[in-house]
Amino acid sequence: MHLLAARQDELDAGPQAEDLGQTPADLVMLSFSDSDLTALAAAWRAGRERLPGLRLANLNRLGHPLSVDLYADTVVAKAKLVVLRLLGGSGYWRYGLDRLSALCRERGIPLAVLSGEAQPDPNLTAYGTVPPATADRLWRYFTEGGPANMGHLLACATTLAGTPLPHEDPAPVPRFGAYDGWTGPAAARVAAPIAAGAPVAAIVFYRSHLLAGDLAPVHALCDALAARGLAPRPLFVASLKEPDCAAWMRASLTAQNAAIVVNTTAFSAAREDGSPLEANGSPVLQAILATTPKAGWQASSRG
């Protein structure tokens, strides 16, 4: 059977046999969710000096049995830990689930099979080879989300793979707060440090970006504003429609005396008493975080 070097993304196309072209690594993590994979990739980059190799794959690309067999034999069979996170239960990836479960049991490879839903699924857990309590711990790292939990998840996974690393229990991420992951301007982009007393530029973004580790746009905005003599203050909220989030945003913008607000949330925050983004009476600029590749926007009249 012919193997495709890259998937043909047609709306009506069924699963196609595909070689992902990955080499083996100690850690292998598979999910239907791009958010899971993005968060794991960001956490691995942040801790790459102490972490083993990691391979990530979206299960949508392993829909054909031949693709599963090839990936199992070339990547999974040589792993020291495999984490599989499934949406919708066992029926949505039955062949792959059976194949990986049998392979990991045969080779003595720790396998954690986790629910991709908000509730754990004991039926999925039973396919794995790690203790249920260990699977539950890994599942909670995913459901809580955020860079810190993803970092601890990888440290926990590395420990399970045979190299102990310190890690903490999964912890909830607040519904709103100041993001402290941007520690200062990138030297290559900003010629001088931010001056004391520089005007504050608040950058408002969704908590979902924090949970997914999808923070490169926020960092880029911070760098660009710092290069222009402003002091960036990235702030995240679950939704400005939530009273607690809105009240915190008003108080934060006022306390920091924000000179300008760059808002990346997609919906209106207007209320009867005005928008919380206008609390300090400063200009509010709307920034759009595109979800499509840059080339597509450049080629489209809509872009």
Rank of each mutant, 00 (worst) to 15 (best):
V83A: 12
L11P: 06
W248E: 11
H2V: 11
N60W: 08
A42Q: 03
A148R: 11
G162N: 12
G197A: 11
D136V: 04
I109F: 10
Y179N: 04
E278M: 13
R48Q: 13
A226K: 02
A279T: 01
V83W: 01
L230Q: 07
E49Y: 08
A295H: 08
A46Q: 06
L253D: 01
C245S: 10
C156S: 13
T129S: 15
D69T: 06
F267G: 07
C104E: 07
K294I: 14
A224W: 12
Y179H: 11
S268Q: 07
T159L: 12
D26G: 10
G53I: 13
G197W: 04
A57N: 09
A270T: 09
A148L: 03
V262R: 05
G63R: 02
L154M: 09
G184K: 06
L62R: 02
K78S: 15
N280P: 00
S300C: 08
Q16N: 10
P132Q: 05
L27I: 07
T163V: 10
V68N: 09
A118K: 09
T125D: 10
G14F: 07
S252A: 15
L154T: 00
A226I: 03
A13C: 13
A77I: 03
G213M: 00
R207G: 02
A5W: 06
N58V: 00
L154C: 10
E272P: 03
E18P: 02
L210Y: 11
G116N: 00
A39D: 00
N123V: 08
R94D: 13
N123I: 08
D26A: 14
A13K: 12
N123F: 09
A295I: 10
A295G: 09
L210P: 01
A279D: 01
A187I: 13
E168D: 13
V261D: 03
A161I: 04
G146R: 01
G96A: 12
P52I: 11
L11C: 08
R48C: 14
A216I: 06
A186T: 08
A77G: 10
Q119D: 15
R55H: 05
A42V: 04
A266Y: 04
M249A: 11
R207T: 05
S90N: 05
R228N: 14
R233N: 06
A133E: 14
R302S: 14
L87E: 09
A188F: 05
E272L: 14
D223F: 06
G177A: 14
A43N: 02
R233W: 03
S268T: 15
A171L: 10
V75K: 01
